[in-house]
Amino acid sequence: MNRKTLSVLVMGASLVVTANCMAYEAGDMILRVGAANVDPQTSNNTVVAGLDVEDDTQIGITGTYMLTNNLGLELLAATPFKHDITLDGAKVGETKHLPPTLSLQYYPMDSSSAFQPYVGLGINYTEFFSESTTGALAGTKLELDSSWGLAGQLGVDYSINDQWLLNAAVWKMDINTDVKVNGSKLGELEIDPMVYMVSVGYKF
């Protein structure tokens, strides 16, 4: 056996050992921290024509508990998002919100694969707070009701070693809120954002 062949075999064996160290198994916990962007896809606005909600980026955190080698339960959290509210492009207010989301995830690949794509389906709860008005709505009291809705998710992990990983994920969330000004309901705003996150993860 020549030196080149031996080197290839050693490299192959090393990759196999490394892959086995990357296994996702029942009982594992995966913590991911990174940048999360909430990009509202405002539609079916029954409040005021031209009303829109701008995007924002904050620190996103997800924690996943592996129920089996292929099923995980994930909680998405973040620092509060702050959104400008615009009317025909001009700022008329702002609000903050927190969108905790609980999802059941399915990882279809073999547990020893370095690449771990997954899909998830869950429930989102969005709490709006610190609403304020400016511009054309200055001096009025703005209220946005909290929201419950479904959330779908696509993501992928790439293991660097047996503990550290890189992650990219996207969610589509169903967020609808009743808009009130000075206590009177003006209508419903469908925000339905796309949420994008890139992060670094650690497996316990």
Rank of each mutant, 00 (worst) to 15 (best):
L154T: 01
M66Y: 01
G135I: 02
Y106F: 12
T62I: 06
K172I: 13
F115V: 08
F128K: 00
G122L: 07
A138D: 03
D110E: 02
S103G: 07
G120F: 07
E127L: 07
A138Y: 14
W148T: 02
N69I: 01
S111V: 09
K180D: 05
G139K: 03
A49N: 11
I160W: 14
E127V: 14
D162G: 06
A168D: 02
A138W: 12
N167R: 01
T140V: 06
Q105W: 03
E94M: 11
S113H: 01
S103R: 13
F115G: 12
T68D: 02
L165Y: 04
E127Q: 08
D110G: 08
A114N: 12
L51Q: 10
A78V: 08
P100H: 08
T68E: 00
D174A: 10
W148L: 06
T46A: 15
L137Y: 14
V179F: 03
V119I: 13
M173L: 14
E143Q: 12
A168T: 03
V53M: 11
L102T: 09
E54H: 11
W148S: 02
G60D: 04
N176K: 10
Y118W: 10
D145G: 14
L75G: 11
D84G: 05
L154G: 13
K96S: 04
W164A: 01
S112W: 09
T42N: 12
I123Y: 05
L166P: 01
K141E: 09
L121A: 15
L150I: 07
N70H: 11
A78D: 14
N44A: 10
E94L: 11
T46P: 09
Q105S: 15
L67I: 10
W164C: 00
G63D: 07
D178I: 09
I123D: 12
Q58H: 09
A168P: 02
H83A: 07
G72F: 05
T42D: 02
P108V: 06
V156T: 12
L166Y: 09
T140M: 11
K91I: 15
L144F: 01
T46M: 04
M109W: 00
G139H: 05
K172D: 13
T86W: 03
S103Q: 10
N44I: 14
S147M: 01
F81V: 09
E74L: 11
M66C: 04
G122Q: 02
Q41R: 09
Q41V: 13
L75F: 13
L144S: 00
S146W: 01
G72T: 06
D52A: 12
T101N: 10
P80T: 11
I123E: 13
N69K: 10
Q41S: 15
D162E: 13
L144N: 00
G139A: 01
D145M: 09
S103E: 08
E127T: 13
L142K: 02
T42P: 12
N45Q: 04
D157Y: 08
T42E: 07
S146H: 10
G63N: 08
T62W: 12
G63F: 06
D174W: 05
A78Q: 14
N167D: 09
T62L: 03
L71P: 13
E94D: 12
L144T: 01
T64Q: 04
E94K: 10
G149S: 03
V48Q: 11
K141R: 11
L71F: 14
G155D: 04
L87N: 00
V48H: 14
N167F: 00
T101C: 13
V179I: 05
G152C: 04
A151I: 13
V53A: 07
